[in-house]
């Protein structure tokens, strides 16, 4: 097992380099920066750069140096997570990200947990009733949900349950009410939860399709296995056969699917945080793109990639831990 994990860890190194290389290329190929490299006055999204911004950009990204040296410097900067300062408010990019990453992580984390809680039982039900009406209904519903754009779902939900046109059950925007700072601990927490319900739902429903389909296939594969016949021959009840013997096997590949959902979820936070005005990383990157604040953009992109890579790594290690066939190699 140790060798397996070590080998997996070693594979992270080239990928990490690949990520840094890709961000490096993104920076140098961006038209504004490409102009700066050629010694022209760059543009920032159609607007001429101020001398100050130009200076800062050249310095941070080493646009005046040869590519190799510049890449080396970029690596050193990344190792310190030094993404420079925001062009908008001149605060360090890392600080801005740190302030906001917590909310986004809790948002994606809750969505992930919720989609597992729903999708796994649904997938199992579909597998157990394969080809029957239930199976088809489930397939229809999860694909229906998957086909609804996040922003449309958010709009409809807000229209129906928030804001008061029909029901006024939940707050429409923000991570907390305005008077949250005066609330006691539990009241604050409840206030936060109420603000998170709609955003989490909007992030969750899209993942149901892939996770439940995956569960279904995994379960179907296990249901055909010989050892279930052994379990039945022992006199175990059908429920025990399915929910103890079969499920344990079927869940092994499913625990690792969460990593594959991460990119879509991170993309989803951009939309959800924008709609519900939540001060998370998605909103940060979106505002930065609109403001052409490229230091913040590159910071968020790099951090997101690192987080996703870490997710893949965790998934692979988790797989080793839950599958005895690999654990005791």
């Amino acid at each position: 097992m140790t060798t397996y994990i070590l080998r997996r860890l070693l594979l992270v190194i080239p990928t990490l380099f690949g990520i840094t290389l890709l961000t490096f290329l993104l920076i140098r190929l961006a038209p504004g920066n490409a102009a700066l490299i050629k010694g022209q006055t760059g543009e920032n999204g159609g607007h001429a750069m101020t001398a100050e911004v130009r200076e800062q950009t050249i310095k941070l990204y080493g646009l005046d140096k040869d590519p190799l040296t510049a890449y080396g410097d970029w690596l050193v900067k990344l190792a310190h997570l030094d993404f420079g300062q925001s062009l908008v408010d001149h605060r360090p990019v890392l600080t801005k990200i740190r302030e906001r990453i917590g909310l986004s992580v809790s948002l994606t984390g809750s969505a992930l947990v919720l989609s597992y809680l729903i999708a796994v039982p649904v997938g199992i039900a579909a597998a157990l009733r394969r080809g029957q009406r239930t199976d088809r209904m489930i397939s229809f519903v999860v694909f229906l949900l998957y086909s609804i754009p996040t922003f449309v779902a958010a709009l409809v939900l807000i229209l129906l349950v928030a804001g008061g046109d029909y029901l006024n059950l939940l707050p429409m925007y923000g991570a907390n009410s305005i008077d949250a700072s005066e609330m006691s601990g539990p009241a604050w927490a409840w206030d936060r939860i109420k603000h998170m319900i709609l955003p989490v739902i909007c992030l969750t429903y899209g993942s149901l399709a892939s996770i439940s389909r995956y569960t279904r296939v995994s379960m179907l594969e296990v249901l055909g296995q010989d050892f279930l016949r052994t379990a039945r021959a022992k006199g175990l009840s059908e429920r025990r056969v399915i929910f103890s013997q079969a499920l344990r096997n079927a869940l092994i590949p499913i625990v690792t699917v969460f990593a594959m959902e991460l990119p879509a979820l991170i993309g989803g936070t951009i939309i959800v945080e924008e709609i519900f005005t939540l001060p998370g990383m998605g909103q940060l990157v979106f505002q930065s793109i609109e403001a052409r604040d490229q230091f913040v953009i590159m910071g968020v992109v790099t951090i997101s990639a690192f987080v996703t890579l870490f997710g893949y790594l965790m998934a692979d290690i988790l797989y080793v831990l839950v599958d005895p066939r690999i654990r005791f190699e």
């Binding site: 159609g46 951009i270 793109i289 609109e290 953009i297």
Partner: peptide
């Protein structure tokens, strides 16, 4: 490792 939506936004955002 790069969320598509993010990457697309960045590419469209950085280019003019």
């Amino acid at each position: 490792c790069f969320p598509s939506l993010l990457l697309i936004l960045v590419i469209i955002g950085l280019s003019d």
